[in-house]
Amino acid sequence: MFLNPTENEIKNLLQEARTIAVVGLSDKPERDSHMVAKYLQEKGYRIIPVNPKLDSVLGEKAYKKVSEIPDPIDIVNVFRRSIDTPPVVEDSLAKKPKAVWLQLGIQNDEAAKIAQDNKITMIMNRCIKIDHAKLLGE
C-alpha cells in the first residue's frame, strides 16, 4: 500500500484516521488548503495546522514543523510546491504517520522514496477532500 494505494485502501485510511496535520495551511478562507482543512474538520477530523507564519488556524494551534506537534498524527496532508516536499516528508518521519498525502498537482519521486523506505504510505497528486467525499460520502 506504500505508493498510490487503491481506492479501497484510501477509504480504509480515511476511516481509521483521526488526526491530520495540514502542511501549508493558510488562514485565508479562499485558499484551497483552508477549504480542504475546514471540510475535514467538519467531517470530524482533528486538523493540526503546520505553517511557520501563523499562530493558529481554524481554532487549532499552528506549528512550524510536523516534528514539533506533540500529538500522534495519522495523515500528513501537504499543500506545498512539489520541489519542497522531500524535507516535509523527512521532518514527518519522527511522527510515524500512516500516510503522507500530497495534494492535487503535487508529486515528487524523492519524497515518495523517503516515505516508501520508511514504510509510510505515499499518496500523490490527489485531493483528500475529493477522495473523502467520493469514498465516504458527503
Rank of each mutant, 00 (worst) to 15 (best):
G137Q: 09
I128K: 01
P87F: 08
I69H: 07
M122K: 06
T6V: 11
A94Q: 13
N125M: 14
E42D: 15
R31E: 06
A17F: 07
G24A: 09
P72K: 12
K53T: 10
G137K: 02
N108M: 07
S56W: 00
R80Y: 01
P72M: 07
D74P: 01
M1A: 14
V36H: 06
I114E: 07
S92Y: 06
G137V: 10
N77D: 15
P52T: 02
I20D: 03
P97F: 11
D91V: 06
P49I: 11
Q15S: 13
V50G: 01
Y45E: 03
D32G: 09
E30A: 06
R81L: 08
A21V: 04
A62G: 00
S82W: 00
P70A: 10
P97N: 11
N51C: 09
E16M: 11
M35D: 10
A112H: 02
V88G: 01
L93W: 05
F2E: 05
A37S: 09
N108W: 01
V36M: 11
N51D: 04
A99E: 05
P52H: 11
P86K: 02
P97V: 15
V57P: 02
N4W: 06
I75Q: 03
Q107F: 13
N12H: 12
F2L: 15
H34Q: 03
V22I: 15
A21K: 11
V50I: 14
I130M: 08
K98R: 14
L102I: 09
I123Y: 07
M122D: 06
D55H: 11
L93D: 04
K61L: 04
C127I: 09
